[in-house]
């Protein structure tokens, strides 16, 4: 069986190597660009996306076990942030978004224990924040995502969708809170955490929370926990698809939101292959 647990990088994307703790500013030079960060030896990065720039940041390497980000999106800037975790890591993210900026995160965790803490600040009107995650926990790995998403300004949107699959004796937890300040009216904020438990020894903790001090907002949150859908499995089997393949299709389907945000096929296909190889 294929036991690959690493990502091979594409050659035709721009690479930034962060050797030491550093400050980096990304701007557009031409069309949309992808940047790949290789954080060898550094522990932190302050990243500024310039006004109006549209940047994709991909991290799929074994960076240092502890890392701290400070990301600043200037007005109208857009950052698509893709991160694939395959080793033990502890990461903190602080994000500040100016007016009309857009941040989109796809966080994929397929191996190792991780602790991620997010402090996301919408500091300007018209911001959009999207955070999608997929975690496939096996053995005794522990993955914990703690999210504090602050809406400080009105007329902004945010969306969080974290999908967990817990197998073996893995322990996965989601602790997410949306905080809407008193003057931040006309906010639309959604948050969900969906879980599939594949083993009774696995453990899932889910705690989505809302703290709303404004009155004219649309917010919702929720979490679900269940097993692979028996009806869907039978449906696929009845078409001649083997049980194991059917389980893989369902897990792939469950992970569709975070995975479909990864438009880079060379990357998405590798992730899909790893997921398929994890089934047992």
């Amino acid at each position: 069986m294929n036991r690959k647990r690493y990502i091979t990088l594409s050659e035709d994307i721009t690479t930034i190597k962060v050797e030491h703790d550093s400050r980096t500013t990304l701007r557009n030079t031409g069309e949309k660009e992808s940047y790949l960060l290789l954080c060898s030896g550094s522990h932190s990065l302050e990243l500024t996306i310039e006004k109006g720039a549209d940047v994709t940041l991909i991290e799929a390497s074994d960076s240092t076990p502890e890392f701290r980000y400070e990301i600043h999106l200037e007005s109208g800037a857009s950052l698509r942030h893709i991160r694939i975790d395959l080793t033990d890591k502890k990461t903190s993210y602080t994000l500040h978004q100016e007016r009309d900026s857009r941040y989109e995160l796809s966080l994929i965790s397929l191996c190792g224990s991780q602790e991620n803490s997010f402090a996301m600040h919408s500091d300007g009107e018209g911001t959009d924040t999207r955070m999608c995650g997929f975690t496939y926990g096996q053995t005794s790995y522990e993955v914990r995502n703690t999210i504090r998403l602050y809406h400080h300004k009105p007329h902004a949107t945010s969306y969080q969708a974290f999908k967990y699959v817990a197998d073996d004796a893995s322990r996965l937890s989601f602790d997410g809170k949306i905080i809407v300040d008193p003057h931040a009216q006309k906010i639309e904020a959604y948050q969900k955490n969906n879980n599939i438990l594949l083993n009774e020894k696995a453990h899932i903790e889910s705690d989505p929370q809302l703290e709303i001090y404004a009155d004219d907002v649309r917010c919702s949150h929720g979490s679900t926990i269940g097993q692979l859908d028996a009806d869907a499995l039978f449906y696929m089997q009845s078409r001649g698809i083997n049980y194991m393949t059917a389980c893989g299709i369902l897990i792939r389907s469950f992970a569709d939101e975070p995975l479909s945000m990864i438009k880079e096929e060379w990357l998405r296909e590798q992730i899909e292959d790893i997921i398929a190889s994890m089934l047992k």
Binding site: A232, M236, I241, I249, S253
Partner: peptide, 19 residues
């Protein structure tokens, strides 16, 4: 019939035929 997000009709039938 069951809905399967993220799996196209095309890929689904390919998988079924090849299996």
């Amino acid at each position: 019939p069951v809905e399967i997000p993220g799996v196209t009709v095309n890929n689904f039938i390919k998988t079924a035929i090849n299996e």
